[in-house]
């Protein structure tokens, strides 16, 4: 820790102004820092090109691919630990952009420790030790499910956990389940890149959510599907305060 303090001070001195809780949103190429504090302990960094600030984006549930661009959406963390040699974003969401080719970049640990892997709170319980079913009373309940930009993949230890929760509640509550898939088709420009999701992604996300619910035991004939474009942002704990990311979601509404 003693050796980290000088490096943290140096980092703050060299980094253009950062302020805690500031929201950042940019597109960039990721850099992998090869720290080793055990499994999954490597650091992921990305530079906001407009300002020259490099951030630690490691806490994202989706990690980058070193040969592809990333859309980074996060907030500068209140509590900085300098484990990776850059200001920490937390919460942070990373979306991999396969069509944006990046030169692979791996840098050494340079004395930074990385972080030991800790099982995140959003993890699915094993079948041999499941969570108990939610108790009654059962009321209408909304389960918003976040998705990465451009994808219908249920993010590991994030969206998958929320989908299991929705299915568990729906099975316990009975009634009907209304699924509405959304896509952000309105183009937006970040870091000089214009991004927009394809319209059919809203349908694919809705269908993916239905696959999860039915696969986990919700009666198929109780599930209805809809899909739409460009929803209003939704303030919900599922998005960890990163409201802009909520434009890419599925709403699962359980109506007992």
């Amino acid at each position: 820790m003693r050796r980290l303090i000088p490096s943290l001070l140096a980092l703050l001195a060299l980094t253009p102004a950062i302020s805690a809780a500031e929201a950042v949103r940019f597109v960039s190429c990721p850099v992998y820092r090869d720290t080793d504090a055990g499994r999954k302990s490597g650091c992921w960094l990305a530079e906001e090109r407009e300002t020259g600030r490099r951030f630690d984006i490691t806490p994202s549930a989706t990690k980058p691919d070193w040969s592809m661009g990333v859309l980074v959406e996060g907030r500068i963390a209140e509590k900085q630990d300098n484990a990776c040699g850059a200001p920490l974003l937390e919460p942070v969401r990373v979306s991999v952009l396969p069509e944006m080719a990046c030169t692979r970049a791996m840098i050494p640990a340079e004395g930074f420790p990385g972080r030991r892997f800790v099982l995140p709170p959003r993890n699915i319980r094993p079948l041999y030790a499941p969570d108990p079913a939610p108790p009654p009373p059962y009321t209408a309940k909304l389960f918003p499910i976040p998705f990465d930009f451009g994808r219908d993949f249920a993010v590991y230890q994030q969206s998958d956990w929320m989908l299991v929760n929705a299915a568990t509640y729906a099975k316990a509550a009975g009634g009907t389940v209304r699924i509405i898939g959304y896509a952000e088709t309105q183009p937006f420009t970040l870091s000089g890149q214009t991004l927009a999701e394809p319209a059919d992604l809203a349908r694919r996300r809705a269908e993916k959510a239905r696959l999860w619910l039915v696969g986990l035991g919700v009666p198929a004939d109780k599930v209805s599907l809809e899909w739409r474009e460009n929803p209003a942002p939704l303030a919900d704990p599922a998005f960890d305060g990163l409201t802009e990311t909520s434009r890419r979601r599925v709403d699962i509404r359980v109506e007992p």
Binding site: Y32, D36, K40, G42, W44, K63, W66, V94, F153
Partner: peptide, 27 residues
């Protein structure tokens, strides 16, 4: 024994473990 797992579909894609990801045989 940790090592960098790279470019292995099913590990490094499509699930978001990252590419590369540091782990061992028991990953």
């Amino acid at each position: 024994k940790m090592f960098l797992i790279t470019d292995s579909a099913g590990i490094n894609s499509p699930v978001g473990f990252g590419n590369p990801v540091r782990n061992s045989c028991v990953f």
